[in-house]
């Protein structure tokens, strides 16, 4: 039997154990397989593959799409994360207000998050459609545009159109998480500030924002990771087109892996993605743990 002391020393590990076992088996193990694969020459012809060192990484230079997709991915991730966070925060603040019917709004705004993405993407395609899409119809009747715009077919508009859908999809999640955080800010803090004569804006800056900091870090880090890896939206909406205008590293990896069956090269791209993401996020993570 363990002594009380030994037990309490082990306790943090015991609490973590189920989580760690699952993560090790279901996430860490395949990631390690992936990293190992990136050092082989495994593809559909050589399913076993032999060790080739960093050859796959050197090949990245030969594929102009890679750099293009990397640039697009940074652009996509930056704008989507920023859009989701800013709009999500605004929505959370609104939902936190003490008005009648807020419960209805809180439930309704979940829809973009919970609707099956493959179907929602189809609805978006129709909305964006050049000739019969409702977006052009509305903009035309408001006099904002004169001629129909092919939102997903023009190089100038395709990426922004996809980004808009990405932001749309993520707002509810950010809003709900931040709402939960807003709800746990003790009301006394605001009351004390009011007595001190602080206005709404001041309370927001001095009470709300600092209280949201911890959660905001987590939300931003996670939405960065998810959006960086998001592939199905673009895959369904444009398949990376027109040309490579909306090609992301995630869609590129998908094509390499599941259409071209170039397993090792796809894994090399994935490893690069992992490294880039780590650079982007670990700086933040170190501050919050």
């Amino acid at each position: 039997m363990l002594s009380q002391r030994q037990r309490s020393k082990l306790l943090p590990y015991i609490y973590l154990l189920p989580c760690l076992i699952l993560i090790a088996a279901i996430l860490l193990y395949p990631v390690l397989v992936g990293i190992y694969t990136s050092l082989l020459d495994r593809d559909m012809y050589t399913m076993e593959g032999v060790f080739v060192g960093l050859r796959n990484f050197r090949r990245l230079a030969d594929e102009p799409v890679f750099l293009l997709a990397l640039g697009n991915t940074l652009w996509w991730t930056g704008t989507v994360v920023a859009g989701q966070y800013v709009l999500g925060l605004m929505l959370a603040l609104l939902l936190n207000e003490d008005v009648r019917g807020r419960f209805v709004f809180r439930a309704l705004i979940l829809v973009p998050w919970v609707v099956p993405l493959a179907v929602a993407a189809v609805a978006w395609k129709w909305i964006y459609a050049e000739y019969y899409g409702i977006l052009n119809h509305i903009l035309r009747s408001l006099g904002i545009i004169r001629h129909n715009v092919a939102w997903l077919a023009n190089h100038e508009t395709a990426m922004w159109s996809v980004i808009a859908v990405g932001i749309w999809k993520g707002i509810p999640f950010v809003a709900i998480v931040l709402l939960a955080a807003l709800q746990s800010i003790p009301r006394e803090e605001y009351e004390a500030a009011m007595i001190d004569g602080a206005g709404n804006l001041q309370s927001f800056i001095h009470i709300t924002l600092p209280n949201l900091r911890g959660i905001s870090f987590i939300v931003i880090v996670l939405t960065t990771i998810w959006n960086f890896n998001q592939f199905d939206l673009t895959h369904i909406l444009t398949r990376g087109g027109p040309g490579n205008a909306t090609q992301l590293l995630s869609t590129y990896t998908y094509q390499l892996f599941f259409s071209a069956f170039q397993f090792s090269f796809a894994a090399a791209v994935a490893v690069v993605m992992l490294v880039v993401l780590m650079c982007l996020t670990v700086i933040y993570v170190r501050r919050i743990i």
Binding site: K9, P12, Y13, L16, C19, L20, I23, I26, L27, L28, Y29, P30, V31, V33, G34, T37, V221, L222, I225, F228, N229, F231, L249, S250, T253, Y254, F257, F258, A266, A267, A270, M273, L274, L277, M278, T281, V282, V285, R286, I289
Partner: peptide, 26 residues
């Protein structure tokens, strides 16, 4: 406890790999 920060970061890092590569091993 020892390894706390490592565990916290590991949990985040493992989900940075594109899901499509996890399908076949899993």
């Amino acid at each position: 406890f020892r390894g706390r920060r490592g565990v916290g970061i590991l949990i985040l890092v493992v989900q940075m790999f594109p899901a499509v590569l996890l399908v076949i091993p899993l």
